[in-house]
């Protein structure tokens, strides 16, 4: 099949989508996927997925996410000759709208076979075993971390001070990381302070307790609490709705949970203090 002929498959690919639906893949999805295929054999389509059914319409009809690429690349991706992720990373595939929806789309349709292609060889089966490793653990706080966590129950934040360099460590550690001497002096800091360095996370890692991923975006943030200086920051979380205003130097205060258990998450997050 010549390259030109191949590109003309674009219409056929969209035309056969409804007959190639994979029922398990579209379960629970309600969204419109727009496609802008450029080039002489291109066109625009919207794949509407709702109530366990797929309808393919010509043109763009209220898409939640729109994919743009050339006819050549679209055919290559569909036939498995070009990896979709690679195409996206290298800018060949452009995406506008809710990217998360697009990842699910990979499972919507059964494999496309160009008309006239020989009988599909059944690919050999490769066995995959999926499991979740789940082990119970018990952690000892020790007297230093224990004292810090206990203080949280009283809405107090403690740091400890190095007798030699006078540096504060938060959370308190047994030993000063610079001088390697014991730190026995505890100091109360904050609870209010300023933002030092915010880190807005769009891609979350799984919760080690439940193996589930948390909602994004969220903001891990270094806060410089009152009484601390330089890099003596406390690492915690900034309220998600404050992310647009997150900047170095902005004043914050901790928001506590109703029940305090002696855990770092007794502080729900820090929020910006409105003037």
């Amino acid at each position: 099949m010549s390259e030109h002929n191949k590109n003309s498959l674009v219409a056929d690919i969209f035309g056969t989508m409804e007959s190639r639906v994979n029922p398990d893949g579209i379960k629970g999805i309600t969204a419109n996927y727009g496609y802008v295929i450029q080039g002489p054999d291109g066109g625009t389509w919207t794949v509407c997925v709702a109530d366990g059914k797929v309808t393919v319409r010509e043109g763009l009809v209220d898409p939640h996410v729109t994919t743009t690429c050339t006819d050549e690349d679209w055919v290559a991706i569909t036939l498995g000759e070009l990896d979709g992720m690679t195409a996206f990373s290298s800018g060949k595939l452009k995406v506008e709208g809710d990217m998360g929806l697009l990842i699910a789309a990979a499972r919507f349709f059964k494999k496309y076979a160009a008309p006239g292609a020989g009988p599909q060889e059944t690919p050999e089966e490769l066995i995959v075993l999926k499991q979740v490793l789940s082990l119970d653990q018990t952690f000892s706080t020790g007297p230093v971390m224990g004292r810090f966590l206990n203080a949280l129950k009283e809405k107090k934040i403690l740091a400890n001070k190095c007798p030699e360099c006078k540096r504060l460590q938060i959370p308190p550690r047994e030993v000063c990381a610079e001088c390697v001497v014991r730190c026995e002096e505890f100091v109360e800091i904050g609870p209010e302070g300023v933002i030092s360095t915010p880190d807005v996370v769009y891609y979350a890692s799984p919760d080690p307790l439940t193996a589930e991923t948390r909602e994004t975006p969220y903001c891990s943030c270094h806060f410089l609490l009152d009484g601390c200086k330089g890099h003596e920051t406390m690492w915690h979380e900034l309220k998600a709705s404050d992310i647009p205003r997150a900047k170095r130097g902005v004043r914050v205060r901790p928001v506590w949970n109703d029940t305090l258990k002696g855990c770092v998450t007794d502080i729900k997050y820090f929020e910006i203090i409105n003037a």
Binding site: I127, S134, D136, F139, G142, P206, D207, P208, T210
Partner: peptide, 25 residues
Amino acid sequence: MTIDTKDCFTIEGKLALPYQYFAGR
């Protein structure tokens, strides 16, 4: 080191990670 055991307690936790194993051809 002065250890005040009133500050020592234990916390239950979990290690939960999904994984997959390929048997190969």
